[in-house]
């Protein structure tokens, strides 16, 4: 399995994802944080490609990187006059956060020992056509409820940011 390019790509993308994730957390400027998130999500898409999940990688780029990040950037622009750069918290709040997050990571890290141990599978199989069929068959309820959810979210978001209607009295 030595020198498998997919593995090298995976590790590269994984390290970059983590690096950008750290940038997201520590960046003072919100626009920088969002940009770092963009790269973190892009690198995750790279991991998906390395794992053979082409379709997922594409979805990740189109929906997450293209949609969510642009959305968040708009959010940042619209609220920018209020808070441009975000102050750091004091040590008293920093320490508990570190302890909680550290404990979570430590616990999960050690849980990894109980996972089924398998080496990287070179099984590459295109599942995209099957996925398309499944969304119309097995997962049709989830698919339809997801569209209900999106319609509801659309209505809700439009309602919340709409200008207030003057009462006619």
């Amino acid at each position: 399995m030595k020198g498998n390019p997919a593995i090298i790509v995976f590790w590269l993308c994984a390290m970059l994802t983590l690096l950008f994730a750290v940038c997201v957390i520590v960046a003072r400027d919100l626009v920088r944080a969002v940009t770092a998130l963009l790269f973190a999500l892009l690198m995750t898409a790279g991991m998906y490609f390395a794992l053979g999940a082409d379709f997922l990688g594409a979805v990740q780029i189109v929906l997450y990187v293209g949609g969510v990040v642009v959305l968040v950037l708009f959010g940042v622009m619209l609220t920018r006059d209020v808070e441009m750069t975000v102050p750091y918290l004091g040590f008293g709040q920093f320490l508990p956060a570190l302890i909680v997050a550290g404990a979570v990571t430590w616990g999960l890290w050690h849980l990894a020992d109980f996972l089924p141990r398998k080496a990287f599978p070179p099984v590459h199989r295109s599942v995209t056509p099957i996925l398309g069929e499944l969304f119309m068959k097995k997962y049709i309820v989830a698919f339809e409820v997801a569209s209900v959810l999106l319609v509801g979210v659309l209505i809700g978001a439009a309602y919340l940011v709409r200008r207030e209607v003057r009462r006619e009295e």
Binding site: M1, K2, G3, N4, I7, I8, F10, W11, A14, T17, L18, A21, V22, V24, I25, M47, A101, G102, V104, T105, L108, W109, L111, A112, D113, L115, P116, R117, K118, A119, F120
Partner: peptide, 19 residues
């Protein structure tokens, strides 16, 4: 280079912890 299941889980665990 090697890549086992637990490596990937640890990557995602660190990502989750950062979140």
């Amino acid at each position: 280079m090697i890549l086992y299941t637990y490596h990937i889980f640890r990557v995602s665990a660190v990502l989750f912890g950062l979140g």
